[in-house]
Design a protein around this nucleic acid. Structure first.
Length: 1092
RNA sequence: GCCCGGGUGGCGGAAUUGGUAGACGCAGCAGACUCAAAAUCUGCCGUUCGCAAGGAUGUGCUGGUUCGAUUCCAGUCCCGGGCACCA
């Protein structure tokens, strides 16, 4: 009876299919376990031996858990929407639906060959309308939701609209437009279109005009993670910025929860790190600096004024000024005078034609009322303002504010109280004339920054190091910053324009590629350090990104290397605030230095100063704590055909969700895949389709690849449900994926998005868990082992690897199929291509030896190994075990077809423990010896532990050791061999089932009513520790730490006894040379060390 | 530049908590069986000195801690992956 693996494997694959052995029920008393693979994109090339690595690992684990008594869900499906099918359609005209279908059929065949235990009745395909109906449905839930920051969860948009009705948006800052504020009254006065626009700025799925990564060559928009170094990840085509109406997912609202969720999941450190990096949370402060248009005349002459001013207003040393401020400012806000209240009621809510702020801080100065749009301050003078000291104070601040273009209008308490109407009239007149003046001025008034908090003529910067405020030597703002044209001085205009032209001329790619060169230009404007009044020049430079923080930084060259390089390059003097910690050669980003040259911070450790400075800034009203994220909202539309259509219709420019009953919006058939007009997707060409049945026009974008894959793990739980994406009972039962296996390439894309979707579905109450994957294992890549031949230049003559130094040769990839190890099959090579037929060879020892290199497995490198061929030659069981034997799953390693023979030999040897070529089954019912039982139970222990910790390579080697030992013991006993088969089942299910059935069909087995029980449902053997107990140990004896001898000593022996035995040993005596040992270290059960 | 991994025979790799370094397999060498081949089996297999017994040396490198270090610590070099002007 031979090990006929081909026959055995076919037979059992068929049998298992017929019996529904892999069918999984949602209704079971057993504990559940969910093992998931990252489903593949069915490409035209089929699988190579690298692909199944993770699938085999998960299959082993799933089968192992099944033997351990779990109800195991282990499904498979296809991520069948995507670019390649469409690219292929563009080239060949074949419809993506056709090629996708074909590719899936091929994939399934290949997967089945390997003997995976998938429940195919649960197969999902993201391109199937019955699947993407629910992708569209979930999208609509996102569209219908906003993120309530107070409750830290998604809520329905109707809830938000109700809040607006009641209180406007004062308690819910708009994530799409930070400056948008309105009252309940204002909300009610908006027309529907305006209301919809505002709601859009809150929705979790929203459309907006945005700069997107536009790839001309692919004719589509790419997500940030699909762009690498300024070119497309796929194809390497150039990518430029383009403004388009796009859909986005507001993932930034979930940044913190995505970050916190990482604490609860079992992902590798590097995987978590990658996600953290991508989210890019940083804590710091936003600081607003007042500007001066140019260096004030006093700057050059003497520092008198600023010193005087700082004496007056910036008593920083003892913080007296801030205490004064508190007195005049905050208390006043709480206990506003009657006059102030009266005036406020007349001024608020735009009643006088401009927005008025009460008790508003302007660079450390608190105005009673501030009209920022027209640079006007209103002061109401009470009695105390008549005192001499106060008059001086008032004059000084009039002068000071005047420097920043503010005028002060003063009224007395009495005026306001008794002549309210005339005060208001005066005020209105002043406002009107100032407005007109503004409009006629050549330079447009400083209006709000796009994302600003409202301070005009001010520069807001984001910094993580407010403690270095006294080391700020210049400011840098992004070239795109809207302040640039407003603050550039006439003298500097030419230079700035030149620089802006230069920036414009550089493609995204160049900007990203050459990050080392230092460029920039001075605007001629200055910012004022609020603590010491220092005037700080403002520069623009590429190295500051418009999209992050405020698009502006305060540069501290002694502490930041980029700032340092910039200062050196432009000869900007550097202030050292960290004493010896700064050496003048390079910046030192430490937080542990003691601050110097830092006024009231002197002597403080930087780390401690951070919060003190922020507190002060907050008190002064010119700064606040701010958390920033590097992550951007995720672009969610593609100008492509082969993806999910949006369930969205536009009416009058407003996007409306289709009713659930109108889903799915099926992807219409097209015969051409070229882009629509204006670079839209192919759907835009379908004039009929665009018009929606209920009126309005359809969205013509389609969803990106990650849409379908963001929730597929839920669909497997209840794949045929047409009432819901999955029944709540099913999702409650299967819950989180217990084990997820896949490649690291999805670290930030797929994993982050599916975590987001899960959180939203959880928030909305559709599922009961908010992290999809409990544990993630990343399989490594199996690399190709390429082979090379060396052709003499200009000849059809090939030189064996040993002689390549003697000739001038070209190195050519040769198909690994034509090579055995490194030896070229010369005949096969000659037949492989017509031009090689007459090739000549320089051989060594009569052989042609090829060069070898490890590379990525790819068609173009001729190093692809097809699993089908391996399965045909060695069988699926061998293939499965060999892939595992290659090394740790997480690790990348090269494929080596030669090595597979070792595993194959093992399986044949294993077979011979049970069956003999001539005698047939040779298993006996004899009682097992202690030695045999020890081998068995040691193996049980090892296999169980190794499988549980995904150390499949050592498990395979444990099987080999076991087979070798049983072979040495000539053990053919059922008592040993039957449990061993169960151990082997997850790894090599076909051979295990075959032998198992042989054992049970044989006369020596009493079936004990077992019926036709498959080994797939056997129980994992129970470890009996008693068989492993040893009474003695072969102790290694070291002399001074060097291993010299072994002595078998009873494990009961105590130290004195052990010492006696050791010292009596000849070898120990030899090394002692008659001396007495200094010490004898005895570690029970481990080793003995004699120190001389 | 920053952040993660990782460096062990000719090769893939093992050593789970600081305790016999190189399990298991590939390749190689020698032998048995065979007319021969395949298959199978046995032995050897880090380097080095030695006929051998037995030594010396050895886990990228330099130090340290320890009775004892592949394992812990400091520094350094190299390789792989990720991020990359994120203030």
């Amino acid at each position: 009876m031979e090990y006929n693996f081909r026959e055995i494997e076919k037979k059992w694959q068929q049998q298992w299919r017929n019996s529904g052995a892999y069918k999984v029920s949602n209704d079971s008393d057993k504990p559940k376990f969910y093992v998931l693979d990252m489903f593949p994109y069915p490409s035209g090339a089929g699988l190579h031996v690298g692909h199944p690595l993770g699938y085999i690992a998960s299959d082993i684990y799933a089968r192992f858990k099944r033997l351990k008594g779990y109800n195991v869900l282990h499904p498979m499906g296809f991520d069948s929407f995507g670019l390649p099918a469409e690219q292929y359609a563009l080239e060949t005209g074949q419809h993506p639906a056709v090629t996708t279908e074909k590719n899936i059929a091929r994939y399934k065949e290949q997967l089945d060959n390997i003997g995976f235990c998938y429940d195919w009745s649960r197969e999902v395909r993201t391109s199937d309308p019955s699947y993407y109906k629910w992708t569209q449905w979930i999208f609509l839930q996102l569209f219908d939701s906003w993120y309530n920051r107070k409750n830290e969860k998604a809520e329905r948009i109707t809830v938000l609209a109700a809040i607006f009705e009641k209180e406007g948006n004062t308690n819910n800052q708009c994530p799409g437009d930070r400056k948008l504020t309105f009252t309940a009254e204002e909300w009610k006065s908006f027309d529907n279109q305006r209301q919809q626009e505002i709601l859009m700025d809150y929705r979790l799925a929203f459309s907006a005009f945005g700069e997107v990564n536009w790839c001309e060559a692919l004719g589509t928009v790419l997500a940030n993670d699909e762009v690498v170094n300024g070119v497309s990840e796929r194809g390497g085509y150039p990518v430029v910025k383009k403004k388009m109406r796009q859909w986005y997912l507001r993932i930034t609202e979930y940044a913190d929860r995505l970050l916190q969720g990482l604490e609860q999941v079992d992902f590798s450190d590097s995987m978590k790190e990658m996600q953290r990096n991508w989210i890019g949370k940083s804590q710091g402060a936003e600081i607003t600096f007042r500007l001066t248009p140019g260096p004030s005349p006093r700057r050059e002459g003497s520092q008198e004024t600023s010193e005087e001013m700082s004496g007056h207003f910036f008593k920083t040393g003892d913080q007296k000024f801030w205490k004064t401020l508190k007195g005049y400012g905050r208390d006043n806000r709480k206990n506003a005078t009657e006059a102030e209240d009266i005036l406020w009621q007349k001024l608020r809510n735009n009643q006088v034609g401009t927005k008025v702020r009460r008790q508003h801080a302007i660079n450390g100065f608190i105005a009673d009322f501030a009209l920022m749009e027209i640079n006007l301050v209103i002061e109401i003078d009470g009695e105390y303002h008549n005192e001499q000291q106060q008059q001086e104070y008032d004059e000084a601040r009039t002068k000071y504010l005047g420097e920043f273009g503010f005028d002060i209008l003063r009224f007395t308490n009495d005026e306001v109280l008794q002549q309210t109407e005339s005060v208001i009239a005066n005020l209105k007149q002043e406002i009107e004339s100032r407005k007109q003046l503004r409009n006629t001025m050549a330079v447009p008034p400083l209006h709000r920054e796009e994302k600003g908090s409202g301070d005009e003529a001010a520069l807001r910067v984001y910094t993580t190091r407010p403690d270095t405020i006294f080391g700020v030597d210049f400011m840098v703002i992004a070239p795109e910053h809207e302040l640039v044209p407003k603050i550039t001085s006439p003298e500097q205009k030419a230079e700035i324009d030149k620089y802006l032209d230069y920036v414009k001329s550089r493609s995204e790619r160049e900007r990203l590629a050459e990050v080392k060169s230092i460029t920039g230009a001075f605007t001629g404007a200055y910012a004022i350090n609020p603590f010491d009044g220092r005037q700080i020049p403002i520069w623009i430079s590429e190295y500051v990104l418009a999209g992050y923080g405020t698009g502006a930084i305060m540069a501290v060259p002694c502490g930041d290397q980029r700032d340092f390089a910039f200062a050196k390059h432009f000869n900007i003097p550097i202030t050292n605030i960290i004493g010896d910690a700064y050496n003048g050669e390079e910046a030192n980003p430490t937080k542990d230095a003691i601050l110097q040259n830092s006024d009231f911070l002197d002597g403080m450790v930087m780390r401690d100063a951070i919060n003190i400075v922020i507190d002060d800034l907050e008190e002064m009203g010119i700064g606040k704590r701010q958390v920033n994220y590097r992550m951007r909202d995720a672009g969610f539309s593609r100008q492509r055909y082969w993806g999910e259509p949006f369930p969205i219709v536009y009416k009058g420019g407003v996007a409306f969700a289709l009713d659930e009953g109108q889903l799915p919006v099926e992807l219409p058939y097209v015969d051409t895949y070229s882009a629509g007009p204006e670079g839209e997707g192919p759907l835009a060409n379908l004039a009929d389709w665009i018009i929606a049945p209920g009126g309005g026009t359809r969205e013509t974008n389609t969803m990106p690849g990650y849409a379908g894959s963001s929730w597929y793990f839920l669909r497997y739980m209840d794949p045929n449900n047409d009432k819901a994406f999955a029944d709540r009972k099913a999702t409650d039962y299967w819950n989180q994926v217990d084990l997820y296996i896949g490649g690291t390439e999805h670290a930030v894309g797929h994993l982050l998005y599916s975590r987001l979707w899960t959180k939203v579905l959880f928030d909305l109450g559709y599922i009961g868990f908010d992290e999809p994957y409990k544990k993630l294992v990343n399989q490594g890549m199996i690399q190709g082992s390429s082979r090379f031949v060396y052709r003499i230049k200009g000849a059809m003559k090939f030189v064996s690897a040993g002689f390549i130094n003697e000739y001038d040769t070209d190195k050519l990839h040769v198909d690994v199929k034509l090579v055995d190890g490194v030896e070229l099959d010369i005949e096969a090579f000659k037949n492989s291509k017509p031009e090689y037929a007459a090739a000549d060879f320089v051989l060594e020892d009569g052989k042609y030896i090829c060069g070898a290199e490890v590379e990525k497995m790819s068609k173009s490198k001729y190093n692809v190994v097809n699993p089908d061929e391996i399965v045909e030659r060695f069988g699926a069981d061998t293939f499965r075990m060999y892939e595992m034997f290659l090394g740790p799953v997480e690790q990348s390693k090269p494929w080596d077809t030669k090595g597979i023979e070792g595993v194959h030999r093992f399986l044949r040897k294993f077979w011979r423990l049970y069956a003999d070529e001539t005698k047939g089954l040779i298993v006996t019912n004899d009682a097992a010896s202690p030695a045999e039982l020890k081998v068995l139970h040691r193996t049980i222990k090892k296999i169980e532990e190794d499988t549980e910790r995904f150390s499949f390579n050592t498990a395979v080697s444990a099987f080999m050791v076991c087979a070798n030992e049983l072979n040495d013991l000539k053990c053919h006993k059922k008592e040993i061999l039957e449990p061993l088969l169960i151990l082997l089942t997850p790894y090599a299910p076909h051979i295990a089932e075959e032998l198992y059935q042989l054992l049970h069909n044989d006369s020596l087995s009493h079936r004990e009513g077992r019926g036709e029980v498959s080994i797939l449902d056997a129980s994992f053997p129970k470890l009996e520790e008693k068989y492993l107990v040893e009474s003695s140990k072969e102790y290694p004896i070291s002399i001074n730490g060097k291993h010299r001898a072994n002595i078998r000593i009873s494990l009961d022996a105590a130290q004195p006894e052990v010492e006696k035995i050791v010292l009596a040993n000849d070898i120990v005596q030899k090394w002692l040379e008659g001396k007495a040992p200094k010490k004898i270290i005895f570690v029970k059960g481990k080793m003995i060390n004699v120190v001389i």
